[in-house]
Simulated scan of single mutants.
Amino acid sequence: MNDMSITDDRQVAHIFPLRFWTDFEGTDGAELREVDWVEWTRKGSQNGTTTSDKVIRVQKDPAKWDAIKPYYRAWKEKTEAVIEGYALDAWPGVTAQQAKVLKDRHVLSVEDLANSSEADLVKIGLPGIRLIQQKAKAFLEARKSTAPVAAEVAQLREENKTMREELEAAMQLLKELNEKETSRRGKAPKEDA
């Protein structure tokens, strides 16, 4: 069973942290020290087995640590972990019900789904999950290939907006100059006294 995916030439474990907590260790009257713990499960599992370990030990395994680190940091900062990748809720490739099932199984992003192993897909238990995974992979590939075009379109829109503002300012200035010229011509010449 492959519990890893490759992201940017490094492996990331397909695990999801369920909870973090702090215990205290110390012996023979020594000052107690805080020790952070994590309990995790494999992505895709529903009521599956869990593993608990000291965070310091998990940090020594780069594949596991890469999967757990953002959640651990968010826990330490008392914030909610940011979903890494394209959120399932924003992706039109799944229904709201499918997204809920996937999130209940700790698959939070399109990238999580695309990188899920065959064993993870079986555990998810959604009808047509392999087709949904293929759509996720195609979506990510399309995003990657259209990203430069989208950036160029955004830049052109910004340039267009700037030009429109400059044109409006020039038209306003021209209008003001025309009004001054018209009012100056409309006055009778001054007579010498």
Rank of each mutant, 00 (worst) to 15 (best):
L177N: 11
A154V: 00
A188G: 07
A169D: 09
K187S: 07
L177W: 06
R164D: 08
A188E: 12
L167D: 04
K161V: 02
E158T: 10
K175Y: 11
E152Y: 10
Q172Y: 05
L174I: 09
A154N: 15
L173D: 13
L177D: 11
A154I: 05
N160L: 07
M163Q: 14
E165R: 13
T182R: 12
E165F: 02
E176C: 03
E158Q: 15
Q172A: 15
E166T: 08
M163T: 12
V153P: 00
K161L: 09
K180Y: 03
S183E: 13
L167E: 07
Q172L: 12
L167S: 09
K180A: 12
K187Y: 03
A188K: 13
L173S: 13
E152P: 00
L173K: 13
L173N: 06
E168V: 07
R157M: 04
E179C: 02
R184I: 04
M171E: 15
G186A: 15
R184C: 01
E181C: 02
E176W: 01
S183D: 13
R157W: 00
M171D: 13
R185Y: 03
K187A: 08
K187H: 07
A169W: 03
Q172N: 10
E159F: 05
A154S: 14
L167Q: 10
L156E: 06
L156H: 08
E176L: 11
E158L: 08
N178P: 00
R157H: 03
L156N: 02
L173V: 06
R185G: 00
L173Q: 13
L156T: 03
R157C: 01
M163S: 10
A170S: 07
R185V: 04
K175V: 02
Q155Y: 05
M171V: 09
M163A: 15
E176T: 11
R164F: 01
E181D: 05
L173Y: 05
A154L: 13
A170E: 12
L174E: 12
Q172E: 14
L167V: 12
N160P: 00
N160W: 04
Q172G: 07
K161H: 10
K161C: 01
V153S: 03
R184K: 09
R164Q: 11
A169P: 00
E152W: 03
A170P: 00
E179W: 03
E165K: 12
E165T: 08
L177C: 05
K175N: 15
V153L: 15
E176A: 14
E179S: 12
A170W: 02
A188L: 11
G186V: 00
T162S: 13
N160D: 04
M171A: 14
Q155C: 00
V153M: 11
E152K: 14
E158P: 00
M163V: 12
E152A: 09
N160K: 09
E166I: 05
K175L: 06
E181K: 07
A188I: 08
N178R: 11
R164I: 06
A170G: 01
R164A: 14
V153D: 01
A170H: 04
T182Q: 09
E166M: 12
E152I: 08
K161S: 11
T182P: 01
A188F: 07
L167A: 12
L173G: 06
